[in-house]
């Protein structure tokens, strides 16, 4: 089962990270899910693939009442991001899924027309209780319709596949402890999967203007403090959109 870690807590306003599934089959990529709660309301970010639904659902249940989750945020349309949607809708058919123009693609996994709330290209505010989160455009990183989610109060940016690292077995820390060592596990992934230098530059400029304490990717460890800036600088320098033998 996945472990639940409270990475931010201010009264009822919390960020819970669901990470490190020890019972996951090796052929499945490990994912991080995040639950943001405020005033009894909750949004689940990139809930994961259907194969890991039991692990995510059980982990959520240990730290929060899943009946209070009424929104799901899908950074993009990949199976490891949102294919568990059908399970969540069986549990609560009233859940709304916020995504980009994938509103007509994601229903191939599950849901009715009224399930989906499209996010416009330039982003939008998403209310969670009394908090206002911001969907931040991250198009072409790596999906052509891609969003990240920023919480200005918690100063946390959820970045989907940006910042992702494919960590070797045994390297299971929740946070990046040694940036130089960690980034080696992120290098090939970013060069291969991030398709556009222009989009990358736009994103780096956009997020540099935000006040960020933690950068939370969907795979690997969380960047915090000075490592957030280190990551943005590193990402702005590497060559992306290339397939090297």
């Amino acid at each position: 089962m996945k472990k639940v870690h409270a990475i931010f807590e201010d009264g009822d306003h919390k960020w819970l990270a669901l990470a490190r599934d020890t019972s996951r089959p090796e052929f499945l990529i490990d994912t991080n899910e995040y639950l943001v709660t405020s005033d009894g309301d909750a949004i689940l970010l990139d809930p994961g693939g259907s194969e890991i639904f039991p692990a995510v659902f059980s982990a959520v249940s240990t730290g929060f009442d899943p009946r209070r989750i009424n929104k799901i945020f899908a950074s993009h349309q990949d199976p490891d991001v949102i294919s568990s949607l059908s399970m969540w809708l069986e549990f609560n058919s009233g859940i709304k899924c916020l995504s980009w123009l994938w509103q007509s693609f994601v229903p191939h996994f599950a849901g009715q027309a009224e399930t989906f709330v499209p996010i416009p290209d330039n982003g939008m505010e998403i209310a969670v209780g009394s908090r206002r989160l911001q969907a931040v455009p991250a198009h072409y990183l790596h999906s052509s319709g891609n969003f990240h989610l920023y919480d200005p109060k918690a100063k946390i940016l959820f970045t989907g596949d940006v910042g992702a690292a494919l960590l070797p077995a045994g390297d299971g820390g929740l946070y990046v402890e040694d940036f130089d060592r960690h980034i080696r596990h992120a290098d090939a992934f970013h060069r291969r999967w991030m398709g556009s230098e222009k989009a990358r530059n736009d994103w780096c400029a956009r997020v540099s203007a935000l006040d960020i304490d933690m950068l939370c990717p969907q795979h690997g460890a969380i960047y915090r403090g000075a490592d957030v800036r280190r990551f943005i600088d590193w990402f702005s320098r590497i060559e992306v959109g290339i397939l090297k033998p």
């Binding site: 259907s50 639904f53 039991p54 659902f57 059980s58 249940s61 059908s86 399970m87 069986e90």
Partner: peptide, 19 residues
């Protein structure tokens, strides 16, 4: 709690099969 975790896994399998 461990047993309820097993139940969630089984219900998930049932859901997939029914789909």
């Amino acid at each position: 709690r461990e047993t309820t975790y097993g139940s969630v896994a089984l219900v998930t399998m049932l859901l997939k099969q029914s789909r």
